[in-house]
Nucleic acid binder design. Structure first.
Lengths: 263, 263
DNA sequence: CGTCTTTTTGAATACTGTCAATTTAAGTGG
DNA sequence: CCACTTAAATTGACAGTATTCAAAAAGACG
């Protein structure tokens, strides 16, 4: 088993270490996380639980792990053992096509849980990779389940998380199925803005962690179209775009570009 | 509360009865279903449970209900109380856009469970309507949860069902995000064929329960494009199409049209 | 039997994709 | 520190696919 330190020392070779991606360093005492004292408490798994229940989560003694940019947290087909809570950094989830291309199914930031698609078949149905230096909590699914078996609150929290993922994907299907390029990008930016705001960051000025190609894959369009649409928004004076740095200068206008169709 | 009979007597007025769509006739003794004797046992909720656990499901005493074509089983925003198992007939799930258009998020047939997207917020996130005469089991979610609290097998079954829905939506996102019209329709037909086969029907000859517009909404294309693509498949001698009656005459060819990209 | 809906098909348009060139940024090694 | 290589993003020109608009045909239904 390789530790987080070893992984950090050899970030280049990540593509060869398929079987190891789920390994977690549970030995390092400095990395023992506690939900009860975590600043992400209100966004993450413990959200909605009372003090006693959160202390039960502390009892799970899950490991923490650092991930380097580009490194996979888990891979499609790999055995499912943990669900992961993002502590810092950003991840993308994707499913890969036979011909090698990927479809990005989500971007994930601090407090969000990923890996729940592995429950269905006991193997991960998607691949999750870090887009920047990141840190996660690895929650052993079986232990969480054991906890949930004796605690209906906990049970409900986990179910709700899964259901939320279903609802999230509904709205993405809606986007992919019935919006044009401008509406897609507007929806993407507004969603990002909202999630950053919920995490205490500026909702109007931020740095994209993903490439144009990754945004395009997520939104079902080519990277050139993403780039063109950014330019169009800039000309419409909705945004200021400097590569990955985005400033929303007309939030209302952006919402109009998007809410035209949704809700 | 209106009974199934009343509902059947006034199918035209369904659009006005928002609050009532989740009502279930639990009084009619003839309609008391038993999982243990149900012919859908191996496809539906009980799949994977042993005899003892299935008998616990019988104890839930959930109601059965008939739905007329076009009638909603539940509606977006409505209070979430039940998950539904399709006994007979076909349903579509959809989310509606501000401007009235709908995005179909799924088609559901015998043995499939719907409504799990309501767990997230306590209200249904989509609308489910029957495409033909249908019959469902309404499983009270709270009761199921109570059962799951004392039975980890049961718990696992429910989690797996939710996760399966997440995985299903992944593959639909993949379809919507990175396939052309022919690939989409081929994927749709192959999926349908496979599910019909699992239910003992012919996988190569079947009757579509949904309109071209509904297929189009599901696949993210216009009804005219669906129609044209059917015609194209017919000219390529992959299908014989007579309105809603479909005969697959070259399964391999259809798979090639689709597997070109997927898995 | 007439009306309404669904489906099919055609023609023209619009949007996004493809290909290619250029610019900018980032990383590498002398 | 600078020249070099590599990767990412932007932009243009053109092509191709799916959409839109429109009309006709075929069912479905009362």
């Amino acid at each position: 088993m390789h530790t987080a330190t070893e992984a950090a020392a050899a970030p280049i070779q990540m593509l060869r270490r398929h079987a190891d991606t789920a390994m977690v360093d549970t030995a390092a005492p400095a990395l023992k996380p506690q939900c009860s004292t975590c600043h992400l408490k209100d966004l993450c798994l413990p959200c909605g639980l009372d003090c006693d229940d959160v202390q039960q989560l502390d009892g799970l003694q899950f490991g923490r792990r650092r991930i380097k940019p580009g490194q996979p947290l888990y891979r499609e087909g790999e055995k499912f053992q943990f669900i992961y809570a993002v502590r810092t950094g950003t991840f993308k989830s994707s499913v890969t096509l036979k011909d090698g291309r990927e479809q990005v199914t989500g971007f994930h930031m601090a407090g969000e849980l990923i890996g729940l698609d592995g429950v269905a078949q006991g193997t991960h149905a998607s691949t999750a990779s870090a887009l920047e230096d990141a840190e996660i909590c690895a929650i052993p699914y079986e232990h969480l389940n054991a906890l949930a078996a004796g605690n209906s609150n906990m049970q409900h929290i986990v179910s709700r998380l899964m259901s939320r993922e279903i609802v999230r994907e509904h709205s993405l299907m809606l986007l992919l199925g019935s919006m044009n390029a401008e509406e897609r990008l507007a929806a993407f930016l507004l969603n990002l803005s909202q999630r950053l705001k919920a995490r205490g960051y500026s909702p109007s000025e931020f740095h994209l962690r993903m490439s144009r190609a990754e945004i395009g894959s997520y939104l079902g369009m080519k990277l050139e179209t993403v780039s063109r649409t950014f330019s169009a928004f800039q000309q419409q004076r909705l945004l200021e775009v400097d590569k990955k740095h985005i400033r929303i200068i007309d939030l209302g206008g952006l919402k109009r570009a998007f809410e035209m169709r949704v809700q």
